[in-house]
Design a protein around this nucleic acid. Sequence first.
DNA 1: GATCACCAG
DNA 2: TAAACCCTGGTGATCA
Length: 919
Amino acid sequence: MPHLYLVDGSGYIFRAYHRLPPLTNKHGEPVGAVYGYTTMLWKLADELHAAEGPTHMAVILDKSSKTFRNDLYDQYKAHRPPPPEDLVPQFPMIRDATRAFSLPCIETEGLEADDIIACYAKAALAQGWQVTIVSSDKDLMQLIEPGLDLYDTMNNRRLGPEHVAEKFHGIAPSQLGDVLALMGDSVDNVPGVPGVGPKTAAKLILEHGDLAGVLAAAEGMKKGKLRDNLIEHADMARLSRELVSLRCDVALPEPLEDLELKGIPDAPLRAFLEHHGFRSLLTKLGQVADAPVENPASVDLPEDDDPPCNHDGYETVQDVDALDRWIAVARHQGWIAVDTETSSTDATQAELVGVSLALAPNLACYIPLGHGGNDLLAEVPVQIDREVALAKLKDLMEDPSVLKIGHNLKFDMIVLGERGISVAPHDDTIVMSFDLDAGLHGHGMDELAATHLSHACIAFKDVVGTGKTQRGFHEVDLNAATRYAAEDADVTLRLWKRFKARLPAEGSTRVYEMVDRPLAPVIARMERRGIKVDREVLARLSDEFAGRIAEREGEVHALAGQPFTIGSPKQLGDILFEKLGLKGGRKGKSGVYSTDVTELERLARDGGPGAEIVRKVLDWRQLTKLKNTYTDALQAQINPKTGRVHTSYSLTGAQTGRLSSTEPNLQNIPIRTEVGRQIRDAFVAEPGNVILAADYSQIELRLAAHMADVPALRDAFANGDDIHSLTATELFGEVNRDTRARAKTINFAILYGISRWGLAGRLEVSADEAQAMIDRYFERFPGINRYMAETLTQVRDHGFTQTLFGRKTHFPRIKSRNQGERQGAERAAINAPIQGTSADIIKRAMVRMEPALEAAGLPQVRMLLQVHDELVFELPEGDVDAASAVIRDVMERAAEPAVMLSVPLGVEIGTGASWGAAH
DNA sequence: GATCACCAG
DNA sequence: TAAACCCTGGTGATCA
C-alpha cells in the first residue's frame, strides 16, 4: 500500500536551528539549521526500505508570512519576532537540500505549510493510502486518525491518538481543534478564552462535546470567572476556531502520483554535502553507496526478553493474605524490588503513604498504608492495618536471604529507618547506573526507563497534579496510585537485571561493591542524625548583618548620587562604568559589564575615584551573601522536631564520584573569611559532647604525586615537607609569601587541567609568562606531563577516565568539534581521576568508620557530615582521644589493601564546642 | 529559566 | 584564524 510522508520543513528548520550550535561552512555561510535538516532527511531516507517506510514523499514549506489567517484576524502571529539573522539565509538552502535528495518541495501563496499538509493528507487518505506527517506540531495533531500518524524525528517517536490524549488530558484528535480554540496560543497570538488553559479546555470539550456546545452551555454554568469569560469572549473563541482550523479545500499544487519516490541519486547529494563540508554525512554516503540494498528492518537487534510494561496486571494489596503471598515469593526467589511512596521528597520528614514491590516484569503490587484524604468525610480506602503491614515488611526488609532492590534506595532507607526498619542486603539501580555511565546521562528513573527500556514512565505530576490543585499522594485514588507506584518497582527490577549483567562485563563491579553500594546505608544514617544548629547564633548574626547591610547600602547610594539595586549586576555596572566613568569595564556576551569580585578588587586596588564605592559594594555583597544564603536560610532549615539540620547527600550528584549536598548544602559553609567563619559557630554539639573535624591534608596533591609518579613530590610528602614551599623553591628559586602563594596556585592549576590562559588570569601575568611557569613545572616535576598525556590518550581512545578504584567517568565531549567544549572536557578529564580517587578513598573511610568505632567500644561517636576531604563527628567529650586514634587510622588507611599508595595520607583533627571551634 | 555572582573543596 | 578564561558542586537575586 502506498505510504505518503509529508515533511513539515519550516517546523524542522526552526527546531534544528535552536538545537544545534551556530555552525558555518567553508564559505562562511551559517548552516547549523541546514545541517540539522539534512540529517533529518537522511534519517528518513534510511527508512526508505523499511516496512513502514515511505513510498511517496514531499517537503512542505511556508511561502510567505501573510496568509488568509491575517485577513481573518490582523493580530495573528503579530508578536512573532522576525527569524534570527543567521537563520534567514538558511531558508533557501533548505530548498537546495531538499532538491539534493530529489524530493518535491511544495509551497503555496496565502497558505501555511500546515494547510498544504492537510490537503495532501486528506487526498491520500481518500485513496486509501497510509500517511505520516513528519512534524510534532500540535496543530497538525488534529489530523491524526486511523491511517495517519505524526513522526517526530528529533525524538524518534511516532505520535498517535494516545499521545494526543496524554498531552491534552484525554481528548481525541478530532476534538483538538476545539480545545486549541478555547485555550488559544500565545506564540501564534491566537486569542482563545482568557483563563482557559489546556486543562480547562479539555475538560469543557469532554463535557460538552464541542466548542459550540461549550459556548451554548456557558449561560447555565455556575457563576464565576470561567462562565463570564466564556460568555464575554465567545466571539474570540469562534474566531480562534477558524484560525486553528486547517484549510484543505484547495487543489493540490502537484498531483499525488508525482510524489512517488524513485530513489536518491548520488551525484547531486554528494555535491550538496561537499559544498557545505558535511563530512560525516559524506562518509556515510560512501558507506550507503557501497552497501547492498537490503531491508534494514530485517537486521535483528538483540531483543530483550522482558515483555513491555503492562500496568493492568498490577495488584493493589489490601489484605494480609495477599501481602503474605508476595513476601513468600520474594523469600523463595531471593530478591525483590522495593519502592516507598511518601508525602514529601524530604525523606527525614516524609510520611509513609505506601510501599510497592516487584518480583518479575509486570508482576508488581502496591500496598497502600496511609491513604485517605484530609477531608474527614472522605472515604478511607481499605488498607491493611499499618502496624501489621510494617511488621511483615520489616521481616522482609531485614531478611538476610532476600536482596532488596531499589532506585535511590537511600531515600527508602531513611523513610523506613525512621520507622525502625533497616534494609539489607540491597542493590541500588541509581548507583549502578552512576558507576556504569557517569557522564553519559542522568540517572533518574524516568530517564533510565526511556534510555534502556524505551519506556515512558507515568509522570508523577500527572498523578498528583501541579500548582494549586496538586494533591498529596495519600489523596490519590488507589487505582492511579497502584499504576504509578507499582510501575516504579517494575521498572527498577527491569533496570536491575540489565545493570547486574553490565557491571562485571564492563569492569565496574569493583567500585560498586567496594565503594558505592555499601555507602548508601551509611549516608542514610548520617542524614537521619543531622547536626544540631543553634538558632540564636544565626539570628544574632542575621541582625548584625542586616544593620551593616543597611549602612553600606546608604553609603553606596550616597556615593552613587542616586538609589539603585546594588544586587543587580546590570544596574551596578551602569552606575560604576557609565555614570561614574570608572575605567576598564569589560562587557560579557550578554552586554552587561562584569562586576565580579576580581573586577571590583582590581578597581579597589587601583585607588582612583571609584575605589571607595567599590569597597563598600564588595562589603555589601559579602554581607548580603552571608545573610541570604546562610544565616537566614539555615534557620529555615532547622527541623522543628529534632532541632537539627538534615542535609540530603546525592550519591550521583558529581560526575567525578564526589557526593553533593542539598537542602541545605552543608558542603559550602563559609570558612575562608573571618566574618563568614562565625557561621560555623552555629553548628554545635549536644551538652556533654563535642564536634570533631578530621581533614585529609592535601589529599589531591598526594594522589597526583602517586598517580603521576613524581619522585620529588613523593619524597616531599614522605618527609612531611611543605609542598607549596618546595614548589616555590623549584619554580622561583626562593620562598617568600608571594612565591609560595603563586606556587600554591600553580599546584592547584595542575590538578584542574591547566591552561596557560587560565593560569595567566589567576596569577595576573601574561599567557607567555604563565606558559613559562608551566614548562618549568613540567621540567622540575617530570611525570606530571606524561600523566596528563596518558590520561588524554586514554579518554580519547575509550571515552572515559578511571580512578585507582576503577570508577569511570565518561567524557563524550572529548570528541566535540566545538573547541571550547572539547578543551573543557580535556581539563575535566585531567582532574577526574584525581578528584575521583580522593572521593573513593573518603567513601571507603566512611564505610569502615562505623564498624571500626563499634569495635573500639565507641558506639556513641556519630559521623554527621562529609565535606569532600573532611568528616565531621559528634561525640562525648570523654571519647575524644580514643576516637581520634580510630578515626585517623581508618582515614589514613582507607585506600588499603585494594590500593597501596606510594605516599602517606595525612589527617588533621580538631575538636571544639562547635564546628567553627573544631577547625 | 537564564544569567550573574559567590560559597565550599 | 580567533578564542581560550581552572576542576567539582549548590543557592539566591535579578530580569526578561
